[in-house]
């Protein structure tokens, strides 16, 4: 049906034009200028003003929804477009949300042995904002991908939906192997910890009562004696911090997680991993 195919093509053209138009509008809007000033400040504090940040094309890609459905839980993922080798690899990915009160979500430190440097997680988004992923490669170069996200949380307040359960479950951890894991091949896993990752909040202007901040400060994952990732973070990570990562298992071993929160409380757990016997 060539006729129909043609219609589809037109349709795609339409979308492309719409996207281009949208980009132009965003580029012209004053908010983009404001964002850039915000970013320049964040950038200077993260990397100093003299380090060059290259366009991320060919190194990393950032995916986030155009519009956040729930501002407290916005899924974002960073895809590495280069292979992790001992000679040249992404050693850190830093996530930044320009307009958040604490713009730096955190840094994921990565290692060459795991094959693929993809990371996905969930973050809080405070406003219409640019989200950025900055990769630092093993040769010390910086590469950035970015995405403009509209938060439209409506009345979804950034608080626990089931408060008693959240507190009762604090510190509980889960590890999930995504798909079959085979010896010597990069495999995807998901780690999560039940934790309010709470920004702290004044709850009464008169009595000055506070719910104190309590958030996950670091996550360290290892497989046997091999490091998988180390995350250092802040309050912009969503409640119940979650990270998807890649690992290349050499043999059956225990995957170990160590999490430290801002109250200096440490949570640790190990799981034996299952390897597909076909490998």
């Amino acid at each position: 049906m060539p006729q129909q195919r043609k219609a589809e093509t037109y349709c795609l053209h339409g979308i492309t034009i719409a996207i281009l138009a949208a980009i132009l509008i965003i580029a012209k809007a004053p908010i983009a200028v404001a964002n850039d000033e915000t970013w320049q400040d964040i950038r200077a504090s993260l990397y100093g003003s003299d380090r060059v940040i290259h366009d991320g094309e060919g190194v990393i890609k950032l995916d986030a929804p155009d519009r956040a459905l729930d501002a407290a839980t916005v899924p974002i993922s960073v895809t590495a477009e280069m292979e992790q080798t001992e000679e040249h690899y992404i050693r850190a990915v830093t996530l930044v949300i320009d307009e958040n009160p604490a713009p730096v979500v955190g840094t994921f430190h990565l290692f060459p042995g795991n094959g693929i440097a993809n990371i996905s997680t969930r973050v809080r988004v405070n406003a219409y904002t640019n989200i950025r992923a900055i990769a630092e490669t093993s040769d010390g170069e910086l590469y950035m991908a970015q995405k403009f996200v509209k938060a439209s949380g409506g009345c979804s307040a950034p608080a626990s939906k089931d408060h008693d359960l959240a507190m009762a479950r604090l510190g509980k951890m889960r590890l999930k192997q995504i798909g079959a894991w085979r010896k010597g091949e990069p495999a995807e896993g998901q780690f999560m910890i039940s934790h309010p990752n709470y920004s702290g909040m004044q709850i009464d202007q008169v009595t000055q009562l506070w719910i104190p901040a309590r958030y996950v400060r670091s996550i360290e994952l290892t497989l046997g004696d091999k490091p998988i990732l180390r995350f250092e973070g802040d309050i912009s990570m969503s409640e119940n911090p979650m990270v998807r990562f890649f690992v290349r298992p050499d043999a059956e071993a225990e995957l170990h997680a160590k999490v430290v929160d801002s109250d200096e409380k440490t949570f640790e757990q190990s799981w034996p991993i299952e390897l597909d016997p076909a490998s």
């Binding site: 501002a71 809080r124 439209s152 409506g154 950034p158 004044q202 000055q208």
Partner: peptide, 14 residues
């Protein structure tokens, strides 16, 4: 808590 925690107490409001 005192005012000292203020910087750690932003609210997330889209």
């Amino acid at each position: 808590k005192g005012r000292g925690d203020l910087k750690e107490a932003p609210s997330f409001h889209p």
